[in-house]
Design a protein around this nucleic acid. Structure first.
Lengths: 213, 213
DNA sequence: TTTAATTTGTGCGTATGTATT
DNA sequence: AAATACATACGCACAAATTAA
């Protein structure tokens, strides 16, 4: 099982009657293949296979993970109402200073953090959204309560960045580790932006997939 | 210079005042990067090219850059014929050991390197492709000469990784900098794979955008 | 909070096997 | 056949990070 701890190198060496160096040599091969992960002072652990995460018109993070046989989990870090900055307003097609709901969170799969995200919702179009989100803790449900029955992803922008200290902390990776940054806008049926989100995926835990039909 | 022989491990160990194990550990890293090649009983030699090292390609890349007002450029690093490894064969739906054409290169925009790529073409389906590629230096044209009039991208997989030494060298970034890795398969009109490619984009120079119409 | 034990990471020394020259 | 050189393995020691007492 991913996350399980292997016997210590010394134990494996004794078990198979070989030197610890030999065990380490074998383990290094597994590390190179990405099957296990080592942590100095802690041990060797079975690596979680990178989660394939299909991107498309309808991105439903939880549903995708469930379909992949994972146990997804979402952890809310912060929900606040504030006014939109210039860039945020531009993406959401609202005016700078308009009220928005900022939703910070952490996504996990099988207990392992795989992404942190910030979602911004224009409150001018979604009255009562913040309260609904607090109650349901489901974005889709809260949007429905705010009058948006369906939404689709209009744009996706991807690049690779280094993990900052706080990002590394939340994602349980090392500072400077590569992250996949996704920026996107979701729109309602009238093509009006109703969410502007940024997501940072741990590079070694997620693979985004695009399938052309 | 390629082909030159390095001092023996023992000599290097004495020269730097370290143990031979340490030298071997360092050399193994160079071997992994494809910079040197070892021959038991003979010595360690500078590799002719950074061979067998993952790199990839992205379709319509040039067109996108041109549309953005850039001056794209493609630089061929290496073209060789070799046999497919297990993973490559699986992606191309051929048998392990079947002949393929490996095409390594560097993509630049306005003179700045933005991506390195490795494209693999199954020669069992594309007779004479290598020669055609050498003549035309255009993948699309070479494919047409090999009998493929049109092709489309079937899958795209994206994740973030750290730049290796050689990748950093080609892309003119620092070792460990975040790269956006794209893996994809192109298929012909009969949905048969005709190209398996990997591309590494410099994270701070490229943003991939996906727009849903 | 501090300390101690545990565990991986790194390095040195040595010996033996195997391929090349 | 002999010397050279890489490949593999064992044993020991210590550093660095983690974990538990």
């Amino acid at each position: 099982m991913p996350g399980d701890k292997l016997p210590t190198e010394a134990a494996l060496a004794e078990r198979f009657g070989v030197n610890r160096h030999t065990v380490r040599h074998g383990l290094s091969a597994l590390v190179k293949e990405g099957l296990v992960r080592t942590r100095r002072g802690a041990g060797v652990f079975v690596a979680a296979t990178p989660t394939d995460y299909p991107i498309g018109k309808r991105v439903r993070f939880h549903e995708n993970l469930i379909a992949a046989g994972r146990k997804p989990e979402k952890r809310v870090l912060q929900v606040e109402e504030r006014s939109a900055t210039g860039g945020e307003a531009k993406a959401l097609l609202v005016d700078e200073g308009d009220p928005i709901c900022a939703y910070h969170g952490l996504s996990l799969s099988d207990g392992q953090p795989i992404a942190i995200f910030e979602s911004l919702f224009p409150l001018t179009r979604l009255p009562g959204f913040t309260g609904a989100l607090s109650e349901t803790s489901s974005v889709t449900e809260a949007l429905r309560m705010a009058g948006v029955s369906d939404y689709t992803r209009a744009t996706t922008r991807l690049t690779a960045v280094r993990a900052s200290v706080t990002q590394a902390l939340h994602l349980q990776v090392s500072e400077g580790d590569p992250l996949l940054r996704s920026t996107g806008v979701n729109v309602d049926e009238a093509k009006t932006p109703i969410e502007y989100g940024r997501t940072w995926f741990a590079g070694d835990r997620v693979i985004l997939t695009f399938e052309e039909p």
